[in-house]
Amino acid sequence: MAAMKFYCDAERCIECNGCVTACKNVNEVPWGVNRRRVVTIKDGEPGERSLSVACMHCADAPCAAVCPVDCFYTTDDGIVLHDKDICIGCGYCFYACPFGAPQFPTDGAFSSRGKMDKCTFCAGGPLEDNSSEEFRKYGSNRIAEGKLPACAEMCATKALLAGDADMVSEIYRKRVVNRAQAALGKGAQLRYRNFGSKVDMKGKATN
């Protein structure tokens, strides 16, 4: 049983927001909803890094643990999905999620919450695969077509990795080691090559 995961390589992400655009384009998400966003840390300062964040498809998902109507389920691929026909739009998943993944279209008075919308790992929802109703509610189902999420496939620098956790971590591990080898090969110490201590949140806070 595979466990699908995203991983964003901060050493590669150039904050082009291509993933955000790809996601919106492929899934035709409701207005005001951003399933994915790129966050830049220490913008304009030494050590600036960007990360693309969406639903992390947690193994022990807090959203699923807190949902009062229990509308979340994990697929065989380890993708956390939810049933919009059961969701009541209470917003508890949004309180619980550390990554700010659950989004709510504001379709009522006083910005009252509609049914929750979040990244589906391009795996649609509980409805029939690639049916028009599934597309309307959850966006496209690329997983059913044998494709990976659009955001990762579109990523120009291959910073955003998506796929089986073992493969993603193997790719990332190789990258980390290669970079370290490269740095050491030039006679530099790791900490002078932006590895480790230099990538911290010290210095000016970028808000």
Binding site: V38, Q181, L190, T206
Partner: peptide
């Protein structure tokens, strides 16, 4: 070398997390 190589991704997440509660970055979204 592999054993002692720091993971910049994990370090970054850890550093960001250490600053909990503070808006740590900016986003175009």
């Amino acid at each position: 070398v592999a054993g002692s190589v720091p993971n910049p991704g994990a370090d970054l997440w850890r550093a960001v997390r250490a600053r909990d509660g503070v808006v740590a970055g900016s986003s175009q979204v």
